[in-house]
Amino acid sequence: MMGTPRLVEIRQNVLKQNDLLARNLRQRFNDAGVMVISLVSSPGAGKTLFLEKTLAALSSQYRVAALVGDLATENDASRLARTQAPVRQITTGTVCHLEAAMVERALEGWNLSDLDFLFVENVGNLVCPSSYDLGENLRLVLMSVTEGEDKPLKYPTIFNSADIAVITKIDLASAVEFDLQAALCSIESVRPGMHVIEVSAKTGDGMEAWYQTLRPHQIKKREITEQAK
């Protein structure tokens, strides 16, 4: 007996499981009053050093913690743990990006309302993380001056999924003849109006401006939680 094939409309988002988990996480973060910031970049663009400095600088005034994703090794978590902030490593094995479920699992046992800021370093990868919402409030995409000014044009989707672009390692800018104007143009082209910060985590240049951009968010967050009470 042979039936005739029929076309049945389904309309199902393939990543709905992740999107649902991310939405729940975002709700939890909002309820707890914690600002969650994720970082994406190509491997080695400087996420961990940027975070080391950020955790150290913010920890005098705020309660901060971090999750850090890598394919293997706990090296980045050990580096971040030197700042005394609570840090957990997520080793993804063969998975080239973080997913909401991994973040949820890594948070087990932490009381989110004890935190003001939670940072999430994604696996170094400019392609895959763009498809996965982690429930974060703010996503930073980092690009170092050694990677070329046209990085955003090569990876428009990840720049589009992010809120702030951070140009890193500006202490090396002149050595590699980095053309800041060209880089800013590329960013503007793929994400018009995107906020851009230029830093050297090594020398500390520009880091103060980065901490300042966090301030209004934190204040806004707090007002929201106060009102909710």
Partner: peptide, 30 residues
């Protein structure tokens, strides 16, 4: 997708209305 500008007037925009889809539309079954 490298240039988020209106093809007609040239104004830039970040308001994406389509293009993020990863969706099973239909199945052909019997």
């Amino acid at each position: 997708i490298q240039h988020f500008v209106c093809a007609v007037c040239g104004a830039s925009s970040v308001e994406i209305v389509r293009g993020g889809e990863l969706e099973i539309a239909a199945l052909e079954i019997e």
